[in-house]
Simulated assay, not measured.
Amino acid sequence: MMEIQWGAPVALREPQGGEIERFSTIEKARYWLKRRWPVADNAQLTALAKIDSAMDCIGPVEDARQAFCRAAISAGFTPARAG
């Protein structure tokens, strides 16, 4: 499977423990939303739908990235430095 790059990595500090996680591919973002996400809410469902759409080449990757960032903030993640 080919990984889909979605620009500069998104670095997020986890709500519990404060670990920083970097998301540089849409596949990793999807995995986290489905398997490791701390909150089940509409923002998570919207992000999954946008990611699936982008992975199927139906929707823009940038829309998926923005929905993922909104879901992260909704779940209690905070932006961190990607460096």
Rank of each mutant, 00 (worst) to 15 (best):
I73H: 13
Q16A: 14
L48M: 12
Q44C: 13
G76H: 09
R30Y: 02
I4F: 07
M55N: 03
L33H: 04
G83F: 12
E14N: 07
G18V: 08
G83D: 13
E3T: 08
G17S: 06
F23D: 00
E62F: 05
A67F: 02
M55Y: 03
A43Q: 01
G59L: 07
I4T: 07
A43L: 06
R35L: 10
R70T: 13
T46W: 05
P38W: 09
C69G: 05
K34M: 12
L12Q: 02
M1V: 08
E3K: 10
Q5P: 06
A67C: 05
A75Q: 06
I73P: 08
Q66M: 15
A40C: 11
E21V: 13
I73S: 15
S74N: 13
E14K: 14
P9M: 02
R65L: 02
G83N: 13
P38V: 08
L33M: 08
V10M: 06
D41P: 06
A8E: 07
V61G: 00
P38H: 12
R36E: 14
A49E: 10
K28T: 10
Y31E: 12
T46D: 12
I4C: 03
K28A: 11
L33C: 10
M2Q: 12
R13H: 06
V61L: 00
A72F: 04
I73W: 11
T46M: 12
I51D: 01
A64K: 01
K28Y: 12
C57M: 14
E14Y: 04
M55W: 01
V10A: 07
